[in-house]
Each structure stands twice: as C-alpha cells, then as structure tokens.
C-alpha cells in the first residue's frame, strides 16, 4: 500500500518540480489558463492511457489503440461529410461503438484463440491502418469538409474548460469507479495478479481480458472522434506511433507490465508527465525533435525505478537479521 501511494506521490512531486523549474524562468507557463490548456492537450493521451492500463493490468498489451483511433476518426469524418447534420451525440456513440468493436476483435482473439496479445495487436494495428486507406482511398478529409458542430463540440467551453477536458475528467472518474468499486475492476486486478488463483475464484481470466480490450477499444474510438474534431483533419497516418506514448504513460505511471499492479491515478499522472514535457519544450526553446528521446529516457528511468521499488528482498530466516532488516 505504502509503496503504491509513494509511487504516485513521487510522480506528483516530479511533475510539480518540473513546473516549478519552468516557472522560474517562464512564469507564463504555470498560469491557470495555460495549465488548463496543457491538461486539455493531454486529454487524448490520458483517455487512451486509462484503457491501456486496464489491458496491461490483465497481463496483456494493446498496440492497436492509435490505429483504432485513426480508423474510427476517419470513419466518423467520412460519415460527417455524407451526413453533416448528424447530432454529435450520435457521432460519439458511433465512435465508441466502433472502437469497442475493434477492441472486441482483439479481445476475442486473445480470449478464444489464446493468441498472445502482442501478436494480435501488432497484427490488428497494421490491418486497421490499411483499412483507413481502403475507406478513404488515401485521401485527406480536411476542415472545410467537416460540419461546424462536428469540429466545434470538443472546444465548447463549460466553466472555463473545453468539453475535451471535461470528457477526460469524466473518463477518469468513470474508470476510477470501475476499477475500485465494481466486480469487473476487481476481476481485472485479480486476473493479472494471479491468473491461476483467479480461475479458482471463479473469474474467467480470458473473459476479463476481453472486457479490458473492449474498454481500451471503446476509449480509443471516443478519442478517435475527439482527435479528428480537434485537429479538424483526418488522414491515414494520423496519430502514427501514438500507441508508444500511451504505453509510455502507463509505464511512467507505475503500471507493471507483468500485470496486476497499477492505478488510475498512475496512468493519468504518467500521461500528464509526458503532456507537460511536450508543452514545455517550445516554451523553454528546445526543439520539439527532443520530445521522442526524452519520452524514451523517461520510460527507461521509470521502469528501472519501478523494478527497484518492487524488488523482493529475499527471505529473512535469521532471527538476528529480522531486527536489523
């Protein structure tokens, strides 16, 4: 308990220290308005990290989230060009449903055919990308082809925050509730912590993994719409390689790739850590080309740190050593 709590507190401290450092020279960065902008900018990463967290907790990995996002985004963008009058709520429901369906495909392959998730999602990742090309014919969907309410919805401000940020907050709250207070959430932890024991307890590990993939897919679908609407453009390679940022956010947030260990707060903080760096680089006048290397280094430091914290101390048999240790 203490270690877990400790890990999240540490991440908060690191992010705070980073902000303080930036603020010492660029006070404009830490104004409430700008921090809100950073939060909003990081919203897609946070939402995806929540889904990825669920998947990683069950000892799987979902590398297809960015491709899922891109395919869903392209699909709703194309739909918007054909039916610009469609209510945004319906578009969002469609995006979530489509994403969930793709997640379900991953989940079924893992659950029913017992194929390792890394193989499944590597495969579906390339397939989803290919399908975008097929449905779009390789063409871009540009801002002027999208309807105003389609692109405008994520930017509507409520209580000073855009809808995009609110959706992230709702997603965080919902996942928090699911993970801590529902049977599914407990099953996800149990299935990853000790699959063998989970089976004895009557938890179907495969089905739990399936559910995690559906969650991850649904959130990716939701992000698909938000992403396309926010940037007002859709093309084949959109969010290319973003799955790595998502995995990075989880790893930095202390979610163990071995399953069973991790928290919603960790995933969110991991995403925010990357988000702050990304937004701070242009401010402190470092080329954005540094971002990739920095996030790579952050992953390595985080995983090394987590391993150190989680290392078992070995048995203490000697009475004298018991008190010393």
């Amino acid at each position: 308990m203490s270690i877990l709590k400790h890990r999240e507190t540490l991440l908060v401290a690191v992010i705070a220290a980073m902000l303080a450092l930036i603020a010492s020279r660029f006070p404009g960065f830490v104004t409430p308005g700008n921090l809100a902008a950073v939060f909003t900018d990081t919203a897609p990463l946070m939402i995806l990290a929540l889904g990825q967290m669920a998947v990683i907790l069950t000892r799987c990995i979902d590398l297809s989230v960015a491709a899922n996002l891109a395919l869903t985004g392209m699909a709703v963008a194309l739909l918007n060009t054909v039916a610009p009058g469609l209510p945004v709520v319906l578009t969002i429901a469609l995006a979530i449903g489509m994403g969930a369906l793709m997640g379900a495909i991953n989940g079924l392959l893992v659950w029913k055919l017992d194929i390792p998730s890394i193989v499944v999602t590597l495969g579906t990742m390339t397939i989803f990308r290919g399908i975008i090309f097929l449905i779009s014919d390789g063409q871009w969907v540009n801002a002027h082809e999208m309807s105003a309410n389609f692109t405008g919805f994520p930017r509507i401000e409520i209580l000073g925050l855009p809808v995009l940020a609110w959706i992230a907050i709702i997603a965080i709250a919902a996942m928090g509730l699911v993970m801590s207070r529902t049977v599914l959430g407990r099953s996800i932890f149990a299935a990853g912590s000790n699959p063998h024991a989970a089976a004895y307890t009557g938890i179907d590990v495969g089905r739990t993994q399936f559910a995690a993939f559906v969650i991850s897919g649904a959130l990716a679908g939701l992000t698909g719409y938000l992403w396309i609407a926010r940037y007002a453009v859709a093309y084949v390679d959109i969010a290319g390689g973003f799955e790595l940022d998502v995995v990075a956010a989880c790893v930095i947030g202390g979610i163990s790739i071995a399953g069973g260990v991790g928290t919603v707060a960790g995933a969110v903080l991991g995403a925010l850590f990357l988000g702050v760096i990304k937004n701070a680089l242009p401010v402190v006048d470092i080329s954005p080309f540094w971002q990739l290397a920095i996030s790579g280094a952050a992953i390595l430091i985080a995983v090394a740190f987590n391993a150190r914290a989680g290392r078992s101390k070995g048995r203490v048999i000697l009475k004298s050593a018991e008190h010393a240790a």
Binding site: F189, N194, H196, A197, G260, V261
Partner: peptide
C-alpha cells in the same frame, strides 16, 4: 477450499 498453493492475490 483452502488450497495447497495459497490461491490468493498479492496485490489486493
């Protein structure tokens, strides 16, 4: 049943 190997969850 209380099993041979403790079938419990370390992280819960």
């Amino acid at each position: 049943a209380i099993h041979q190997e403790t079938v419990l969850f370390d992280d819960l």
